[in-house]
Computed example of a mutant assay.
Amino acid sequence: MKVAGIDLFCGAGGLTHGLALEGVPVRAGIDIDPACHFPYEANNPGQFIRSDVSQLSADVLDGMYGDADVRILAGCAPCQPFSPYAQRYDTVGTERWGLLYHFARLVTAVKPDVITMENVPTVSRHAVFLDFVQALKDAKYQVWFDVVDCSSYGLPQRRRRLVLLASRHGNIGLIDPTHEQAMTVRDAIGHMEPLDAGKASARDPLHVAATLSERNLQRIRASRPGGSWKDWPESLVADCHRADTGKTYPSVYGRMRWDEPAPTLTTQYYAFGSGRFGHPERDRAISLREGAILQGFPQAYAFVPEGAPVHFKTLGRMIGNAVPVVIGQVIGRSIKQHLGLNFPESAATKEANASEHEAVIA
């Protein structure tokens, strides 16, 4: 049985990579962001196609599947329109709000066997999501969705996401949680090379930390893991936090705790002042590579060509917006279980499983 997946809004390839680790073939990833081309193709077998999904025709999408017997379509549309913070600035009239309607348009026309998407939990409050679910049901799909605690599947991060699965072949759902005990920041990045603010590793250009002003160096030195700016001397507290409105943001300028999962990473996780993104003990925010690892990417995942410049904003956006690789694996296992398929494990999965087995024996 030939299986083929297409990953709409593929980004840097987090979902595709997770599916590939489970042996689920993905033929192509589609995204409008040209910066995603290199990481997608450098780490995944599928082809990157730069295209606006709102302009993608059903005939073109249908042709990508070729002679596949089982067709899987992923469509993890950008989550920003549905986050509570973004709704202060983004409106229903903007193009990004309508991307789920284009996803539904393509599903209705192409009728893939299995559908999956991931987004922020608050997407379920919006009419566009309810319309999307109804369109799937009208097209004779069995639909399942729920808010998932990603740490219960082995992601070292407190990241809650809505995951949807739909099938034309009966009931479908996500597999049960795989981890009773959450992976921690120490488990994920405790082995990383020590690094100071503004410095980069000679071995891994992505293991680079943003610079800090002298004022922010004083602030992070006054911060304790799991604490906030409320722990600082009054002289270090920013004027905006002294105001009543600023008191509702206690997690900014905070350090992570070693022995807990990381907080939810955003696209600005590399900035100490943007959340609890301070390293547990070094006087800096976490590096770009550390954030990628906390998002489930393998440490060797390449995001830029060798020798190319590393831009914090571009890479922070790609990594922070990614579907965690771990969740891609869980979705892949769920689809295999639903369809009764037994794909061979990839070499990377075999190696990871072997390492885990050796660790348990040790």
Rank of each mutant, 00 (worst) to 15 (best):
Pro298Phe: 06
Gln337Lys: 15
Glu22Asp: 14
Tyr153Trp: 04
Ser51Tyr: 06
Gly273Tyr: 11
Cys10Thr: 15
Gly75Trp: 02
Val128Met: 04
Asp69Arg: 14
Ala28Cys: 05
Asn353Glu: 07
Gly328Ser: 08
Ala222Asp: 12
Ile115Cys: 10
Ala12Met: 09
Phe82Tyr: 15
Asn119Ala: 10
Asp131Asn: 09
Phe82Lys: 00
Thr108Asn: 01
Asn342Glu: 12
Cys240Thr: 09
Val128Cys: 06
Gly246Arg: 04
His37Leu: 10
Gln87Pro: 05
Met256Asn: 00
His279Leu: 07
Pro84Cys: 10
Asn119Cys: 00
Val24Arg: 06
Asn119Ser: 13
His311Gln: 06
Arg282Cys: 12
Pro344Asn: 12
Gly190Met: 13
Ser235Gly: 05
Ala77Ile: 11
Phe303Glu: 08
Gln134Pro: 01
Trp258Tyr: 00
Thr314Asp: 03
Gly320Arg: 06
Ala188Thr: 06
Ala209Gln: 05
Phe145Cys: 02
Leu19Ala: 00
Arg257Val: 10
Ala12Cys: 11
Met117Ile: 05
Ala68Ser: 02
Thr248Cys: 13
Tyr270Arg: 08
Val24Gly: 01
Val120Cys: 03
Thr349His: 08
Ile220Val: 11
Arg160Gly: 06
Arg284Ala: 12
Tyr269Asp: 04
Pro261Ile: 08
Val185Trp: 03
His169Gln: 14
Thr122Cys: 01
Met1Tyr: 14
Ile335Ser: 04
Phe312Gly: 07
Ser213Val: 09
Pro39Phe: 09
Arg276Pro: 05
Trp232Ser: 09
Ile286Ala: 01
Arg242Pro: 10
Arg219Glu: 05
Ile220Tyr: 03
Ile172Asn: 03
Gly227Val: 08
Thr94His: 15
Gln47Trp: 09
Leu288Lys: 00
Gly254Lys: 10
Ala42Met: 03
Asp239Phe: 11
Val147Gln: 03
Ser334Thr: 12
Gly93Cys: 13
Lys350Val: 10
Leu100Asp: 00
Val110Ile: 04
Asp231Cys: 04
Leu19Glu: 04
Trp229Lys: 02
Asp196Phe: 05
Ser274Tyr: 04
Pro84Tyr: 13
Ile361His: 11
Ala139Trp: 06
Asp239Glu: 15
Asn216Leu: 07
Arg257Lys: 14
Ala354Cys: 11
Val110Ala: 08
Lys111His: 04
Arg159Trp: 14
Ala104Ser: 06
Ala42Ile: 04
Pro121Ile: 15
Ala262Asp: 00
Ser167Tyr: 03
Arg203Gln: 09
Arg203Glu: 13
Tyr270Asp: 01
Ala28Arg: 02
Gly154Tyr: 14
Cys150Asn: 07
Pro205Phe: 12
Arg333Gly: 03
Asn321Ile: 15
Ser201Val: 11
Thr245Val: 15
Thr108Tyr: 03
Ile286Trp: 00
Glu345Met: 14
Gly5Ala: 10
Gly227Leu: 03
Leu21Ala: 02
